[in-house]
Design a protein around this nucleic acid. Sequence first.
RNA 1: GCGGGGGUUGCCGAGUUUGGUCAAAGGCGCAGGGCUUAGGACCCUGUCUUGUAGAAGUCCGUGGGUUCAAAUCCCAUCCCCCGCACCA
Length: 937
Amino acid sequence: MTLDYNAIEEKWQSRWEENRIFEADPDEREKFFLNIPYPYMNGFLHIGRLYTYLRGEVLSRYKRMKGYNVLFPFAFHCTGSPIVNAARRIADGEEKQIRILKNMGVSEELIGKFADPEYWTEFFPEMTKVHLRQIGATIDWRRSFITTSLNPHYDRFISWQFRKLKEDGFVIKGAHPVIWCSKCQNAVSDHSRLDGEGEIPQEFTLLKFRHGNDFIIAATLRPETVYGQTNLWVDPDETYVRASVNQEVWIVSLQCAQKLADQEKDVHILENIKGIELIGNSAVAPVIKRAIPILPSKFCDPNKGTGIVTSVPSDAPDDWMGLFDLKNDASLREKYGLCIDDVQCIEPIAIIDSKGWGEYPAVEICKKMNIRDQHDREKLTKAKKEIYKSGFYTGVMNKNCGEYSGLKVEEAKDKIKAMMMEEKEADIMFEPSGKVTCRCLTDCTVKIVRDQYFLAYGDPEWKRLAHEALDNMRFYPEVIRKQFDYVVDWLNNWACTRKVGLGTKLPWDENWMIESLSDSTIYMAYYTISHMITKIEPEMIDDSLFDYIFLGKGNPEEISERIGKDLEFTTSMRKEFLYWYPFDIRSSGKDLIQNHLTFCLFNHVAIFPKELWPKGFGVNGWLMIDKEKMSSSKGNVFTADDMHGKYGADVTRFALMYSGEGIDDPNWETNFVETMGDKLEQWYNFALENYGKGNEEVHYIDRWFDSMVLSILKEVNSLYEEMMFRSAIQRGYFDMQRALKWYLKRTSAPNRAVMDRFIEVQTKILSPFCPHVAEEIWEAIGKEGFISTSAWPEPWKEADESMLQSEEHLKSAIDDIREILKVARIENPKNIYIYTTPEWKWKVVKVASEEKEFKTAMPKLMADEEMRSLGKKVSKFLTTAIKDRIFVERVDERGILNEARGFISQETGADIHIDEPYDPENKADNAVPGRVAIYIE
RNA sequence: GCGGGGGUUGCCGAGUUUGGUCAAAGGCGCAGGGCUUAGGACCCUGUCUUGUAGAAGUCCGUGGGUUCAAAUCCCAUCCCCCGCACCA
């Protein structure tokens, strides 16, 4: 019979809904609360997210069958600027953005609506819900919500959280550099950029070179290289300015002067100065306090840094090539009035020992890469990167670096910078880490924003609490614990407010918006009451309500009166929260370890009492498609809807869950997926055809199969508990099916009770992965109610291990026969004689396995009359038994073989004779426990 | 460099915590056979090398060591992947 996946999906999804089986309310059962991070609503759910989602989904189904009252809610994240920006692009009629929506499957006539950000927050949550529903989601949708001020209830909740954090001193204030558009007079977030996504403010050290009463300023990313300075570079054709900067006179590019004004400097431009005027002069370099010459070069960019560069030819390929050109090009020297003596004497100064390089890495790499001159930009950029990386990570300051010699570059860098700042020999400025262009086509710069608020994750006391929470948590898998420990220590203060985008306004400073990673840290608590709080008018909600619900503070009678509800309503919210909280597992992709999940932990320990701290985190890898990373350039980013359309819900679910587990990247194998539909259908047909049928007699092999099922079930159980779903499928489906095949091969007529039990167990084990087919089977075999809410199979007895072992003996006997047939090239065996192990050998093995040593085992055996009579044979066999570690458990070989005689005969095509005296080649003697002797004619 | 994870038989991937039953599960691929009008569907068998009696040899990144015994323990070493942030 062919399964109509579409029909059964719709059938069961509607029934689940009608019966509200996934709507969770507190009751007398033990609860289990798990959740996953809500996705951002600027597109459809892709299968990577679906994978993360399904891990929660499968666990929730399993736990429900285990008898827990399971809460598995879901919500939609709308905070931040991407939606706003994308909406504006639609409003502007931007082709690229329109195409993105069209490719997602948004119809032509709807596109116009996306000009309004609010429409995104309606459309995508709705679609996500549809896509999750059709895949068989177990969500309690009553509790869903969107974030930001578009949801006034949630908005109040976040305001409460932030007031709370501020009161307790977790929010601090400071200055913060942001990417800035001087034309728009606004911070330019990633997605409002025409160009330069991902670029961030980067800190440069400004080195001050005394030049008369002025300072020539050079910007560097490598302050530690000041010890290797040999000269300054100035572009002779460029115009610089003399400007008063905080009461000093600085010489910098005009562009730089403007930026400095944005970065908290008091800047007044005094006059212009031509680059050429500076050439040939000298200036006193910081730290080394030595006058160094100012030389011409063409790689000084007035838009970058100060337009003036200090030269460290030992470690900067550009600098080395600059010198190289001057030394080798007489016309160049002449042009700027320099003579050979001015440059010939300049030699690199070795300052850093780093792995794989001699004392002048820059010189070396220029040779190695065959760099022609200072205009060979592409190669130079590459060279710079390589030298910087090895220098920074592996380098150690050498003897030329004064008190810093012997320090790692990594440490020296900050120390030297701090020292120069202290001595007023340096300052700092920020530049974007790469070119950033605003949508208004202006090149962006960096501005220091005042009044930036931070969450003080750098605070040691807060970290201590977070560690304490970690120590009491469970992790899935356990290996990620160390990662969290590390991240908690490493995390620093986090800028938690933004100027633009959707979100909740900072309650005490409404010029600011709470950014998207900060308004999503304790909302799991909000799920517990989200379906109730919407019954209160948002204007009536104030902090006292949340204080009561989440912290048990205040007087519920007064609060009830204020919100216009009866007391029971108010107290039931508190009760509901206490019933579900803390959550048992929050599971997400591994990218969220270092931000979201750790933030979640920090915020919980800041706000809630210990007993409400998170109990567990689960983490999974990134889904690969046929071993390739998903990326739009490869065109392999599929949505949940795509896969559902192609393979149906159960196959998609099954394939995703079989794709991987743990922290490794799971891999979606198209090859595998395509065979799964048939496999599920096969199981469906098998179950229907075989349920309720069979023999009443109980044979050995029936008991074996029963034990096998029990034994696998036990393992599958603990695999489910650990969220090891790939292994659970491996054992619970593939291995189970193999056992079934063996059973069917071995038995002439399956036992009805054993078979029924097996079909039930197998279907239940599969049901969290493929719930629709499972329900369909459940119904077809005449079960009441849903399999989704039925009880997980509990072991009906202990698995009989000796029976499992016996069957292994039989398998190995057959393997042996096959081996002999193959090696001896016997085509058509007529008679196979099997000789079992004589009783005395079993005795020897028993003693051997107890004693493990010849000298103690032998006397023990010799105490036995019968053994003594066998004499040498015993001693000889004992030696082999101990040497080959034949310590097997006693099984009834003859019984098993007799029982399986027909089977062996059928497998080999010969007549089987067991323990007959006929033994022409004296094979019988080969029999040892665990291995029968064989003679074939 | 720091932190984390890993290197297993054509590929993927178990096994390593608790050394022996490990030539090493399972899946995929491949080969042969069966079923079939046919099949990319299904079933069976095989898939390191050699082997005319169930064996032997080699093997788990590399080199050492411990042990009666090592994929598994110890030491050294090489290589790969992820993160090193303010990005939804």
